[in-house]
Design a protein around this nucleic acid. Sequence first.
RNA 1: GCUCGAGUGGUGGAAUUGGUAGACACGUUGGACUUAAAAUCCAAUGGCCAUUGUGGCCGUGCGGGUUCAAGUCCCGCCUCGAGUACCA
Length: 938
Amino acid sequence: MNYNFREIEAKWQKYWAEKETFKSTNTSNKPKFYALSMFPYPSGAGLHVGHPLGYIAGDIYARFKRHKGFNVLHPMGYDSFGLPAEQYAIQTGQHPAITTETNINRYREQLDQLGFSFDWSREVRTSDPKYYKWTQWVFIQLFNSWYNKTSDKAEDIRTLISIFEKEGNGTIEASCDEDTPIFSAEDWMGFSEKTKQEILLKYRLTYLADTEVNWCPALGTVLANDEIVNGVSERGGHPVVRKKMTQWSMRITAYAQRLLDGLDTIDWPQPLKDSQTNWIGRSEGASVTFNVIPTEPSHSESHKIEVFTTRPDTIFGVSFMTLAPEHELVAKITTTGQKAEVGTYVEATAKRSERDRMADVKTISGVFTGAYAEHPFTKEPVPIWIGDYVLASYGTGAVMAVPCGDQRDYDFAKHYNIPIPNIFEGVDISEEAFADKANTIIANSDFLNRLSYKDAVSKAIAELEKLGQGEGKVNYRLRDAVFSRQRYWGEPFPVYYVDRMPQMIALEHLPLELPEVEKYLPTETGEPPLGNATDWAWDTEQSAVVSNQLINHTTVFPLELNTMPGWAGSSQYFNRYMDPHNDEAIYSEEAIGYWQDVDLYIGGSEHATGHLLYSRFWQKFLFDRGVAPKDEFARKLINQGMITGTSAFVYKDLDSKNIFSKGLKNGKNVIPIHADVSLVNASDELDIEGFKKWQPEYKDAEFILEDGKYIVGREIEKMSKSKYNVVNPDAICEEYGADSLRLYEMFLGPLEQSKPWNTAGITGVHSFLKKLWKLYTTVSDSEPNADNLKTLHKTIKKVEEDIENFSFNTSVSTFMICVNELTSQKCTSKSILAPLAILVSPYAPHIAEELWECLGHSESIANTPFPKFEEKYLVESTKEYPISFNGKLRFKLELPLDMGKDEIETVVMAHDKTKEQLQGREPKKVIVVPGKIVNIVG
RNA sequence: GCUCGAGUGGUGGAAUUGGUAGACACGUUGGACUUAAAAUCCAAUGGCCAUUGUGGCCGUGCGGGUUCAAGUCCCGCCUCGAGUACCA
């Protein structure tokens, strides 16, 4: 009987679904194991062979843990809000929900076909109102919380209000907006309700604030940095300006230090931790206040410029200051004489996006404001400049420029002929700045003279503190996360406005569902797409959504029209799987109390500074507020590598109708054109007729062959529809089966490494499965012999180690060796073949189930205990020790395994072969390592 | 520029704490079976040299070093990849 994988796979997929084999319970006396793979965005293109890599690895591990006696949670769902469905809606008018539903069904079909052990009863979809109700709920919790720096955690906003009532905000240590004014308890009690709300907004963990964005007036929307090319929009080429807009933000900066510290407690890949560390960008230094010298009568108001520096030791080297063009003081301190010039410069830089400015590092530009600040120690006037090398978004948007110690300041000073005082002992700064902290000795700096970097820093900070003009400070690169998007297909905010102040919709009225709109584009007046809804506003008396047209009615209030960004829905889904159908709470205490956190999370490294950072932030917040028991959501994380495509190219001659084969293109004026990989065979030979049919514009082209064949060029590229290099898993399953695909994806190389797909090699694992199948065609109750047992236990040991180390590729090799050995041993013993089926089952579950049934079992193999490794079957009476002499002559000697080191040495020296090799000479040294090699040095 | 990672046959990749480098697979070549093909099975396959035969030399990006012994450890380079980028 042949290995009929199509029949077998369909049979067991049906069996698992009907018997709910992988449904997990929230109570068990088994230990728990939560294995999670990142849920996908269901795109219209469906899955290609690269997508399942991480799912297969996660599934192998989950199935392995099940065999090991764990109660395994292995869920799957869809991150189903997102841009592509919305863009499709804009183009075609088809509702994104319909597109999404279609795509999900397609995904499900493809996933089912691969035989995953997902518990589908727990499926979540971020675009499902039942799910996003709880995304909205988390938002409300964030709104109702503030960050207490003293207790170092998020607390209920009411505790803040009661502090305000008792002592104002002068004593409180909290994460809040920079511009928060100081007030007393009396002040607070005297504030109007609106003022109180405005102040609280500066403390809430999600807040409304004016944020600089890339605004495209023609498109009526905010664009992300990567949607802008050369200062105009990627779509349509419309101008883009930097603009302040009122947006929701998340106060993730409150968690900067804890997000950094938490990295030490989790088993995540080092590169990923590094990129989060980088992203958070902690730097230690000082904040220094410079007083602006009033120069004109109109500048009667006194101004202070606060800067952040990591080099307070160089403060005597300051010869100018630079403000970012967007700095709020620019308009206030510029002298009348410089107004025109400054105005022109600020306008010019506003037209360039921040990314654009950053990309253009070489051009030095700036302008003098005409104003001066007073040096805190020397009291000398320091000219204040504006320069676009200073970024508004980092630090305070202003720097004290020390040209002798910082290359950018140095270049700026050289360019504008600003003096470059040298404050370093024995250093030449005529060519470039000196930034070597380790070899710094300060000079020309009053009380800092002769001090090292470290001593000078602490001395400078101490002196600044005495003056009240500075203090030691830790600065983070991390910015608060803008949470508003002018999109349709996202979670609506559970927010309405009374007197322009945001109010949260009560839990019993959630979810606030997305309204129907006719157009998915922004409104003519520049409001987000939700502004097109005619049937969507909150009526507090009726507690219902009513027509938008009633907005001016006294009891009806406008709703927030922005939607949440893509990462909102994915920031808590891993916990929701624990109790996905709960309508009363985000999840029950019992459920999260049992499952706690994710034990193994598998997904791509591209989420390092997005999803994986935001999720850690939300988790820490939910932990602070007592909603989650752990402050890190995933203890171990694995990044699977990307499977890239192998694109094929034909070479079209620009001057004729000729298309040259790869070997003939050199010296010709050709352009490469993508050819669909399905038209090319394993030897890179093109199906020319197929190509002409596929691209009719080349039907009259002349294909110039080499050796009678057209050979394509190959190149490794990201797998994508537009590169015609997509390999579809459905086709592979049809030809070789899901088990072959699963094994092959693992066999391709180390899980965490990127590697190109090459279908040709799949025959190797497929023929392994056929051999495996054949091994079970003759099964007997005969006793296994020593060789059989050795082979089996060798395999158990290796496979178990491999799975624990995520070296899935080498265990596929181990299986192949095992089957080859058992075949040549003519092993038929059931007591060998039964455990072998279990070993294989995490990798190739369908065939394993079938073999298990052939062996006479009626229950699924999925819950059978993993075979136990026993050392004794590997132990032999003698072991071969290779012996090398002078590193050149070698022979093998069989010695008892338990022989001691000295004993081995004696035996080796007495051995005829040794004597022969030594030819009467005395060895200088005999090195014996039991179980390893014996070296005799002559 | 900075940070991290990686360089091993024609290809993907193996190789515990330093201990017979190239497992396993693809590909290639030869053979068996077949009218033929497919499928299957067997053999060879890092390079060079020698050969009637056992064999010898060189080999893990490059140059040094430590060691009886280095793909693995140390120092100095080169190349490629990923991330990040005027971070004060």
